[in-house]
């Protein structure tokens, strides 16, 4: 049994998602940048914070804006004993809470910096603490803080301007959301067997007990029947180019070679499904359907598909179309 392979994977759109916010969300965020909270009054008289772009009851557009706060009341809370400094607004323990600003009929989800869960209570009075650096985001409000009766709300600090920059003046049009998720992905048994084969410079396809149609690379099943592929067959290292294209787009990934490069479907001898592979050691203009190729191994091989560096022409006469046309 092959050792099961696991690889770390990061899912992140570089730079973050650029989310345009439209006029209603934009106005709310602009007010936050100014150190104020605004909500919208809907047809039934309720004031919603944060505002929706439409009346959730009638569907109509919302029009009437109302300043709310600055204080608020906690409607529910939970303590975060071990915050994630990369993600959360505060690096020390805090509470997530639903805070209903004065004058609003709904609560907004936010953060309370209370020092300890013993200081938290449903119904408690809180006041806003704004950051100096504000960009038009819910995080411009750094946190709510407990407020004693009669205690004054903290003064909103003047907007801090980044060095060499200018104070933003126009309405907020969008936010940037950084989203980074990490995974440990495991390959699965059939793919692991295939990849360990590559490590030994062997290309291993698989088929099920009821069929001799060899899948390369195997993904665990004979897709026609849903039966597991349990029988290993070594295929290649030679094969036939069934079809291909010439890629002229640079920089599709770190691993994309210099352009132009040729991507081909290669039907390895003994296999019944083609591999999608890079061709090398040939001019793009010389590649043709039916060309015979062979795997070229990387200098360093391991249990991953980079062990095959590319496929190069063998110099054999082109394959007869009847041997591969059914596999297009």
């Amino acid at each position: 049994m092959s050792e099961a392979l696991v690889e770390h994977h990061v899912l992140e759109y570089p730079g973050g998602y650029t989310r345009s916010v439209g006029p209603v969300i934009g106005r709310f965020l602009t007010a936050l940048r100014d150190g104020r909270l605004e909500g919208v009054r809907i047809a039934d008289g309720r004031v919603l914070v944060p505002p929706t772009e439409y009346d959730p009851v009638t569907g109509a557009e919302v029009g009437e804006w109302v300043e709310v706060g600055p204080t608020g009341r906690v409607r529910s809370w939970t303590w975060v004993a071990r915050p994630d400094p990369d993600l959360h607004p505060l690096g020390h323990p805090f509470a997530f809470a639903l805070v209903q600003p004065e004058g609003a009929d709904t609560a907004m989800l936010h953060v309370v910096d209370a020092g300890s869960p013993d200081a938290m209570a449903i119904g408690m009075l809180v006041g806003p603490r704004y950051r100096a650096e504000r960009v038009g985001s819910v995080r411009d409000l750094e946190a709510w803080v407990p407020l004693a009766d009669g205690e004054h709300v903290a003064v909103v600090p003047p907007l801090a301007v980044p060095e060499g920059g200018e104070a933003p003046t126009g309405p907020v049009g969008g936010i940037v959301s950084r989203v980074r998720l990490e995974y440990d992905i495991n390959a699965g048994e059939a793919p692991s067997r295939f990849l360990h084969g590559l490590e030994q410079r062997r290309i291993l396809g698989e088929h099920s007990r009821t069929s001799d149609e060899v899948y390369v690379p195997p993904r665990g099943s004979d897709a026609k029947t849903g039966l597991p592929t349990e029988i290993e067959v070594e295929v290649g290292p030679r094969g036939t180019v069934t079809t291909f294209c010439v890629v002229n787009i640079p920089g599709l990934s770190e691993l994309a070679p210099e352009v132009p490069y040729v991507c081909a479907q290669v039907l390895l001898d003994g296999a019944h499904t083609p591999l999608f592979a890079l061709l090398g050691e040939c001019d793009a203009g010389d590649v043709r359907m039916g060309m015979r190729v062979e795997a070229v191994w990387a200098d360093e091989v391991g249990p991953d598909q980079r062990s095959i560096r590319w496929f190069r022409p063998t110099g054999e006469p082109d394959a007869d179309p009847s041997t591969f046309e059914a596999y297009l």
Binding site: L29, P50, T78, V80, F96, L109, I122, V138, R139, I175
Partner: peptide, 19 residues
């Protein structure tokens, strides 16, 4: 726009309901 940027996890959101 309003909630995800603060990164409350599914457990935090559930906890708010539990409370």
């Amino acid at each position: 726009y309003y909630v995800a940027p603060l990164w409350p996890s599914a457990v935090h959101l559930a906890a708010l309901q539990a409370q």
